[in-house]
Design a protein around this nucleic acid. Structure first.
Lengths: 196, 196
DNA sequence: GAGCAACATTAACCTAGGTTTATTGTTTGC
DNA sequence: GCAAACAATAAACCTAGGTTAATGTTGCTC
């Protein structure tokens, strides 16, 4: 009785958030996932379309990308394996996604159907509690980001980004950093020149 | 066997989020709260101090207020009864609060100890699920706010505020609206003049 | 190696919103 | 009724960052 490939990683990740699950018990849930591969540039979910899936990134990294009506790109966030990805809004409220999730790399992930994921969770308090933790962390991150946008200069946000995302700083184009901290690539260029 | 004053309101509020609790069952949890009154201007929790409490606002409304190192006020959000209030970060991570919660009115609320609240939740899936919903909604709101800060002009944020908070627009000073949408009162004044 | 397509930088200019300082309401308390 | 404290507006000025457009730069692919 063994878990499907990479599911072990998922259980471990969730265990790290809340220690009340182990693989043996987990197997009993019958939670199934599709193993998926995405190549650099491909989309896991697409802005404007339903996205009733939760992803567990086994390898690679992605960004959450919103394109405004004027055609401007905004990188809401990055997510690096191992991590959970998906649009909370789209899956829990059953509406279209407000952003796309783009592979920035070759990505290996598990894809869960949210409906099933949610139902299984109902019957396993430890599982639900881990999801709780996840939501708390996500909320707290957005709150920190709110502070950053209101209180910090673009320069400070850039420095904070470099500081908190050392694993990304040399792997992604600068324009993605710019669109993540809410400025144009030109403004970022100016800031970088000044900092030299 | 009856609930303590206003607890019924709390149960109803939580039921509205997720229908799996009713007062009769709820009473069995033994979840206790202190009934508190705050006068306009008083603080429910204080920035820089521990805040291991969850509040249920029975009457009145509050704002979440952060003061930066340079002394600038930022109103993170408003909350009107009936609603749950508190610092998710401070209570779940057991750290000092990054903002104060200020009564903008005479406030009546129930005050729960987070530790107890959390423990009771563990044994009542329906309760935890309601908390889950709450977190999801909080997260989604912050996400919407993130979009607003990055994509909308101050003028647009002001109009959106008026639109989505009709119950507040005439009850709070303009400077609070300004500090909520991330501009100075002077800038808001300019915008209002232009809109006349 | 030529040609093309992203990416990054630079310079010139523009604008939204910050800052400072005053002026005018408007509550609040004595 | 008056002073004190706060809230809102106004004018003058300043600056961070947007916009446009030109110029490099780094790969690709053929």
């Amino acid at each position: 009785m063994s878990l499907q490939p990479h599911m072990e990683d998922f259980v471990q990740y969730f265990s790290g958030i809340n220690l009340s699950i182990d693989s043996a018990n987990f197997d009993k849930f019958g939670l199934k996932a599709k193993l998926k591969h995405y190549q650099k540039g491909e989309l896991l979910i697409t802005q404007g379309q339903p996205a009733p899936k939760v992803f567990f990134l086994v390898k690679g990294f992605v960004r959450y990308l919103n394109v405004s009506v004027e055609g401007k790109e905004f990188t809401q966030s990055f997510s690096c394996a191992p991590s959970i990805s998906g649009s909370t809004r789209a899956m829990t409220r059953n509406v279209d996604a407000l952003f796309s999730i783009e592979a920035l790399d070759d990505v290996i992930c598990l894809e869960f159907d949210w409906q099933m994921f949610f139902e299984k969770m109902q019957f396993q308090p430890g599982f639900m509690q881990a999801y709780n933790r996840l939501l708390e962390n996500m909320f707290i991150k957005k709150e920190e980001r709110e502070y950053a946008f209101v209180q910090d200069s673009a320069e400070q946000r850039y420095l904070t980004f470099l500081d908190t995302n050392p694993q990304l700083r040399d792997k992604i184009p600068l324009k993605m950093i710019a669109s993540h901290i809410g400025i144009t690539p030109i403004a970022l260029s100016r800031i970088r020149k000044k900092l030299q």
